[in-house]
Amino acid sequence: MSLQLLANVIVLAAIYALVGSGYVLIYRVSRVLNLAHGELMMVGAYLLVAVAGVFPSNPPIALVLAALCGLLMGIAVYVVLMRWMTGEAVLAAVLITIALGILLRGLTILIWTTQEFYPGAIFGWRNPPVHLARGVQISSASAALVCMTIVVYLGLFVSFRLTRWGVRMRAAGQNPLLAEQRGIRLHGVYALAWGLSTFTASLAGMLLALDAGVESTMATIGLKAFPAALVGGLDSLPGAALGGLIVAVAEIAAIQYVDPLLSDVVPFIVLLVILAIRPWGLFGSREQLDRV
């Protein structure tokens, strides 16, 4: 495999890992599979477009602001919608997320039309290529994305292990009943999980938008990242990273050596394989399967 191909794999793996972490965050803490994640990522990208319009000469402010909006969006989704499904059948909650995804697709087109937007252009940034060793190059936005993925994972790891809210989130994820008995407010924990999830999704969406623009079909990437989360284990963060790598390798190898049309289906072939041989994923916990 040439070095350029390897670089492409790493970039794609980072995308899937970053987006995939959002699925894991919500699933691990509240056992809900958020199938609107791709659409929420897309909204995050559009939020950058909107904020960029207000602060075109101040990209850092715009980025931070847009990311914060992404965080608030997740909390809002929980408080307004998902909160009512806490305690109900998981499947009903998943169906609501599907419906939410459809709603968001419609809304984004109504607000921003089907036109393609380039927030990078709004900032006047040309996304120069970064030259790595031996003639290998990736775009700056891609490089930023890889770095962001590493930072996000480290941040999540630290906060899960060391902060009080992190302990609460892990407790609620393991045994919501016992957590409630011990005085943990589940609604607060779940809202935080949703907020973090859309925060990371928005980061991913924004960086993808800076790289290649945003338009209404961007949500597909979110759906393709789902197999990455599943392969690693829906309740394992390191699993999502590894899963992202596996799916990225499979996808790029398929495009390169077999058939470019396979690009959208390879992640799901990997998904089917893992469901056949190890449904709870590489690092996932087995009991999760029976709880559903």
Binding site: R164, V167, R168, R170, A171, Q174, N175, L177, L178, A179, Q181, R182, G183, I184, R185
Partner: peptide, 26 residues
């Protein structure tokens, strides 16, 4: 009124300290 249940009475993937910590009222 606090219950010590028959099964699933602790958080298995949390340490002892973390188990005790979650009980602290905010």
């Amino acid at each position: 009124i606090v219950l010590v249940p028959e099964r699933d009475k602790v958080f298995p993937n949390l340490t002892v300290t973390e188990n005790l910590t979650v009980s602290w009222s905010a």
